[in-house]
Amino acid sequence: MPLLSPLRRLSDAVNQLAIVLCVACVLIMLGISFTAFVYKLATGSTLSWTYSLARLFLPWIGFLSMTISLRYGEHVAMTLLVRSLPRPLLKAAAVLCLVVIAVFALMLVWYGWVYFEGASQVYMVSDQIQVHSKFTAIVVPLSGLVILLHLVQGFDLLEHFIDDQSTIDELIESTDREERP
């Protein structure tokens, strides 16, 4: 399919962007926490807004890391059980798994959008810092869209088709090459 290759490249690019956003969120959280720590050391009092502001990044980290782990096949899977199936049933189980992932992603988009539209609160982090709840709500449908995009990778998302014996043989060969003088 000529459309599949550009979509797979887009999936990879979106995955790289998600990685950058996750790292940025973690660094921002660490920066906020470090600021609170240094302020506490310097003055002996605490900044009331640091905890509230830092935790606003947790949904972003959680939902985006979910899409990243899916892309690398690190999601929850019953690999041992599925690999013990005959090849035709293995393919059927893999297709079923992808369908379940697609349904989950569609539910994230559908219900996440309803949640986003209904988000009307403003988080009062402090008197000066106010963050609209839409900031955290938008990540739910956004992650659903990313998961749907990652589905263009097909069976590459699943580790059911990795041949363990060939992987073990490759590891043994690379170790043997390193030991030879």
Rank of each mutant, 00 (worst) to 15 (best):
residue 157 L to R: 00
residue 35 T to N: 12
residue 68 I to A: 05
residue 176 D to H: 07
residue 180 R to V: 13
residue 36 A to D: 13
residue 17 L to G: 11
residue 103 V to Q: 05
residue 89 L to I: 01
residue 132 H to Y: 11
residue 39 Y to A: 07
residue 130 Q to M: 14
residue 142 L to S: 11
residue 65 S to K: 00
residue 44 G to L: 06
residue 35 T to F: 12
residue 84 S to V: 02
residue 1 M to Q: 04
residue 110 W to R: 13
residue 117 E to N: 12
residue 112 G to P: 05
residue 174 S to A: 10
residue 109 V to D: 03
residue 144 G to W: 08
residue 100 V to E: 03
residue 50 T to Q: 07
residue 155 F to T: 09
residue 177 R to S: 11
residue 127 D to T: 13
residue 98 L to T: 02
residue 153 Q to Y: 04
residue 176 D to Y: 01
residue 176 D to F: 04
residue 3 L to T: 05
residue 66 M to H: 04
residue 15 N to F: 13
residue 28 I to Y: 10
residue 131 V to S: 03
residue 129 I to T: 06
residue 123 Y to N: 09
residue 106 L to K: 00
residue 106 L to G: 10
residue 33 S to G: 11
residue 148 L to R: 07
residue 112 G to T: 06
residue 28 I to W: 06
residue 174 S to P: 00
residue 130 Q to Y: 02
residue 134 K to L: 06
residue 72 Y to L: 08
residue 69 S to D: 04
residue 54 A to T: 02
residue 157 L to G: 03
residue 65 S to G: 03
residue 148 L to C: 10
residue 170 E to C: 04
residue 101 I to G: 01
residue 166 S to H: 02
residue 12 D to Y: 05
residue 55 R to E: 15
residue 36 A to L: 00
residue 160 H to L: 15
residue 77 A to H: 12
residue 101 I to A: 09
residue 68 I to K: 00
residue 122 V to Q: 06
residue 155 F to M: 08
residue 73 G to E: 08
residue 167 T to M: 14
residue 105 A to W: 05
residue 84 S to D: 15
residue 170 E to R: 12
residue 143 S to G: 07
residue 172 I to L: 09
residue 164 D to R: 10
residue 164 D to I: 09
residue 140 V to H: 06
residue 55 R to C: 11
residue 71 R to A: 13
residue 107 M to W: 08
residue 133 S to A: 15
residue 139 V to R: 01
residue 42 A to F: 03
residue 84 S to E: 14
residue 91 K to L: 10
residue 41 L to F: 10
residue 140 V to C: 08
residue 151 L to C: 08
residue 15 N to Q: 10
residue 56 L to R: 04
residue 149 L to G: 07
residue 166 S to I: 12
residue 170 E to G: 05
residue 179 E to N: 14
residue 29 M to N: 00
residue 39 Y to R: 02
residue 2 P to R: 03
residue 146 V to A: 13
residue 20 V to C: 12
residue 17 L to Q: 03
residue 79 T to I: 15
residue 44 G to A: 05
residue 150 H to E: 11
residue 90 L to I: 00
residue 42 A to P: 00
residue 146 V to E: 02
residue 64 L to I: 02
residue 166 S to A: 10
residue 140 V to M: 14
residue 104 F to V: 12
residue 24 A to N: 01
residue 73 G to F: 10
residue 129 I to E: 08
residue 162 I to N: 15
residue 72 Y to V: 08
residue 84 S to F: 13
residue 113 W to G: 02
residue 9 R to L: 13
residue 158 L to K: 01
residue 72 Y to T: 03
residue 140 V to N: 05
residue 127 D to L: 05
residue 65 S to Y: 06
residue 18 A to P: 00
residue 121 Q to R: 13
residue 112 G to M: 07
residue 107 M to C: 13
